[in-house]
């Protein structure tokens, strides 16, 4: 019954070859990587970062890649992992902590597949967490904010670990310079409503914040628009992608996360038979992954003194001498 069903499909569906191949996928077969993202890859933000990593692996390691968007639907996670694993994918990246449970469930059945989980600290068998410690660059932004401004405002999408950690780092950075420096946080409650990010930022600015930092995936851009419309005195920092064109006068610098670099490195190792022994944490020590640069076109560019101080702090963070957040 099963065999005829498969035979049937074989003539009709191109993918049948993949199904029939099953787990016995070894030498000669192309190296394959799958990606699960919780939302849409079409917007600048979290999901795009995962997608770029996938594309990087395709380009640099010559892997066959595919992805699936799961619309924040936990019920689909397990099936998606299984769909990829049963088609002989060697590496599957679940882009977000929420994929951890499902990966742990599926992984024992597919010991030859490596399950990578973004923003997770897991390390159990073939399930490996990858975390970009965003609290580190945000710590630096906090230092800059406290050195150059009067009050800081943070606008988050939802209260999830990558965003909470970033904001914790920022606040700690601020405190390290000026313990009484005011920092406000606002959450808009989603990752799509760019207008809400904009209004929340404007509201913070009207309450005296002169350093606003949006962090809401696809909706982030609204924060930079708010800064641009509020005059050159309002400062901000471009995060994850380059938003300089939106607010060229306000953006003091860029923190660009090249997560792809990190993922390519790890997946390259896996391809060569070296599975990471434990979970991986990218930080300022990984200069290829975290790029922290300044924008000299800003109306009030960061002064040399401050840059020097920031570089010092950066060195200490990379060396592990400063803890940017509680672990």
């Amino acid at each position: 019954m099963m065999i005829t069903r498969r035979g049937c499909l074989g003539s009709a569906v191109a993918m049948a070859a993949l199904i029939a191949a099953g787990p016995a996928f070894a030498e000669g077969a192309p190296f394959k990587m799958g990606l699960l993202v919780p939302g849409s890859i079409s917007e600048e933000g979290w999901n795009r970062i995962g997608f770029n990593a996938l594309k990087g692996v395709e380009k640099e390691l010559g892997a066959e890649v595919s992805y699936v968007e799961l619309q924040q639907n936990p019920a689909s996670f397990e099936k998606a992992f299984r769909d990829f694993a049963s088609q002989g994918y060697n590496v599957i990246l679940g882009h977000g902590f929420e994929f951890q449970d499902a990966a742990l469930e599926v992984a024992p059945e597919y010991p030859d597949t490596v399950f990578l989980i973004s923003s997770s600290y897991i390390s159990e068998g073939n399930v490996i967490g990858l975390n970009t410690d965003t609290s580190q660059p945000f710590y630096l932004m906090g230092v800059i904010a406290a050195k150059t401004g009067r009050k800081a405002g943070l606008v988050g999408g939802m209260e999830i670990p990558p965003i909470k950690e970033a904001f914790e780092g920022f606040t700690n950075g601020v405190r390290s310079v000026a313990p009484d420096f005011p920092v406000s946080e606002v959450y808009i409650g989603n990752f799509t409503d760019a207008t809400a990010t904009k209004e929340a930022s404007l509201s913070l600015i009207s309450q005296g914040a002169d350093f606003v930092l949006p962090n809401a995936s696809g909706a982030t851009v609204g924060g930079f628009q708010a800064a641009a419309e509020s005059g050159a005195d309002v400062k901000t920092f471009s995060i994850f992608s380059d938003y300089t064109s939106v607010a060229p006068k306000n953006i003091l610098g860029l923190y660009v996360a090249d997560y792809a670099r990190g993922v390519i490195r790890i997946v390259g190792d896996i391809k060569n038979g070296k599975k990471p022994a434990t979970n991986v944490e990218f930080g300022l020590k990984d200069a290829d992954v975290m790029k922290f640069t300044y924008n000299d076109q800003a109306a009030n560019p960061v002064t040399e003194d401050v840059r020097k101080y920031v570089d010092e702090v950066k060195g200490k963070i990379a060396a592990g001498e400063i803890k940017t957040r509680q672990k």
Partner: peptide, 9 residues
């Protein structure tokens, strides 16, 4: 308001 289209904006 925003300068971009986002799915489900």
């Amino acid at each position: 308001h925003s300068n971009q289209f986002v799915e489900g904006i």
